[in-house]
Design a protein around this nucleic acid. Structure first.
Lengths: 335, 335
DNA sequence: TTTAATTACGTAAACGTTTTCGGATAAAAT
DNA sequence: ATTTTATCCGAAAACGTTTACGTAATTAAA
């Protein structure tokens, strides 16, 4: 009984046409204030809410945006999502969240499932396992899309990133100021601009301070945590680095465990810092120096950007927004 | 041009009716294998995907489910969501995620926005700030809904929970076996069954071992982390507990910080354990003994349950599923 | 006073599906 | 030869909105 409250029902009870009701609900200029009030108050009384499917079908608007991230369990992404939601809520949009788990195929499959008008726009942070530039070159023409953090550089699309190069340069200098000379680099996201920028910032800082870059001090990320653990131990034994620059959060656990197992003291024997948004960084033993990205703000900016596109405003704005990360010095670098 | 590929277009190109096309796409028994193949292959060739709005409008099915949680940044919930997604993907459903940030009003507002047919069903873990039993009593009649972890006990609805009472009892016994006598309880989720069950398990274990329950050793959770920090310090100074049983993850950071500031050694001066799904628990200083809930499995079970409802199967199954948590002993309890 | 403009509302088509019902054909049963 | 049944397909309505267009009533301009 009470379930079937739709526009037709409102129209009948008020003795007006459904067109008038619809327009009144959408605050159209064509409708007098008096009838608007009549409609609105009855709608409220009957607890009317518009059917989204019908509305979407007719208007081609879904009031939903999609967020595609590798993993919501990652601190960075969960914060970014929070930033996105804040804006989405402001614009009355729902948020559809997809996790790719770094699987490029799943990423494409998810994205494709959104192209038939399921969402108004997409915010994406691409998977790190494959560089799928061609796919995205097509995609950005088909749907409003904003990249954040993990972007494709060459594309003509809106991109929100951070100052990976500069902050990595600065972090490396921090090591050097603490007296480190053999700074190892734990290399993640190698296929993405963010990864290479972090690496280049590290390398350039070494060179700028007259320290030779040594290929053998670079360790590539493996998805298998055990492998990373083993690799770090090997790195320690073979090359005795006095510092570890971890370019992604995932290296922290195996690095700390390796130090514990090899009885290396942090920061005495080796100093460590890492890109990270872990809230417990300050509780590690010892507390971890981090490069912390403004994750919430990135999500915030990305979402704002998308709604600019959806509302056709500021299309001539700069398509590249770069936010600043911050280096938080703690005990693991010890100075 | 290529954008407007819908059923009508397929029908025209194949010289058959749109009804036939629709039925073929839905693998109806009314359609011959031959025409099914013709339709399917053309659909694939033209990259046809059905318009979800139209489909939803007509069929009253959205192929989406909603997940309502307090916070995706919480390790427990992000894992649970992963478990949900696995099942949703299996059934070809999309997942809409909402964060309430423990705000009961926002929770109601979100939930209400889903009642007009935006989703086929809801998985929810209710906010801890208010006990909104009346609201949910109405709600479960209107929409397929499954509670997980944070439930309303009195309702006739599907609920996935864990053995909070038993595991808390066991954890308290672990303290006692380690020689603790003044075990403080950091009390969270007090308005929810999960919270009270944990508290009761703690209390009953004390009594079972002839230890007096002391009200002054119980500390209620505050949303303000600074307040928790201060309260824990006061607790330490006033009552010198030799153990801290944290019933929620959020107490860990202030507890560790308080110990550090007061120069209390863990587990020497005070032993600590906490409900937690933090992956870095083993890296804390010292590594933290945890009660870890099977978060992924909870999500998994909850989603399975919802799809049972949606497919009208197993409606006579037990509506209460209880999974087992596990006590992982580490250095912070020291024995 | 006539005409033009403005305001307020209604009619009906459209969005892309799904589904009910019925019909045509052919095979099987009588 | 007639009836029944099975198989395959189409016509058309329906889902609940939005919106282009038309029109009557009122007001402003001529």
């Amino acid at each position: 009984m009470a379930g079937e409250v739709n526009i037709k029902r409102l129209a009948q009870e008020l003795n007006i046409s459904i067109a008038t009701v619809s327009k009144a609900l959408n605050d159209s200029y064509e409708i007098s204030l008096k009838t608007k009030n009549r409609v609105l108050s009855l709608a409220k009384e009957l607890n009317y809410t518009p059917n989204p499917a019908a509305s979407n079908l007719r208007s081609n608007k879904t009031k939903t945006i999609a967020v595609i991230v590798p993993d919501v369990a990652n601190n960075f992404f969960s914060l970014a999502i929070k930033g996105i939601e804040e804006i989405a809520r402001k614009y009355g949009h729902h948020v559809l969240i997809y996790q790719t788990h770094e699987d490029a195929e799943m990423e494409k499959s998810f994205t494709n499932s959104l192209l038939n008008g399921r969402v108004d726009g997409i915010l994406t942070s691409v998977s790190s396992n494959e560089y799928n530039s061609d796919y995205y070159r097509d995609l950005v023409k088909k749907v409003p899309l904003v990249f954040f953090d993990r972007v494709y550089e060459s594309l003509d699309a809106f991109k929100i990133t951070t100052d990976d190069y500069q902050i990595s340069f600065k972090a490396t200098e921090h090591f050097i100021e603490c007296g480190c000379q053999n700074i190892a680099f734990l290399y993640g996201l190698g296929k993405l601009p963010a990864g290479t920028a972090r690496f280049t910032g590290y390398k350039d800082a070494l060179i700028a301070h007259g320290i030779n870059f040594r290929e053998e001090l670079v360790l590539d990320y493996s998805e298998d945590e055990e492998v990373n653990f083993a690799n770090i131990k090997t790195l320690f034994k073979k090359h005795k680095p006095d510092a570890l620059f971890s370019s992604i959060e995932e290296f922290i656990i195996p690095a700390y465990m390796a130090c514990a197992e090899l009885k290396f003291s942090i920061p005495g024997d080796v100093k460590i810092l890492s890109f990270s948004n872990m809230s417990s960084a300050k509780l590690l033993n010892p507390s971890l120096t981090t490069i912390t990205q403004p994750a919430f703000e990135i999500g915030n900016e990305a979402a704002k950007c998308l709604f600019k596109i959806l509302n056709k405003k500021g299309m001539d704005d700069d398509k590249d927004i770069v936010l600043k990360s911050v280096l938080i010095k703690r005990a693991s670098t010890g100075c």
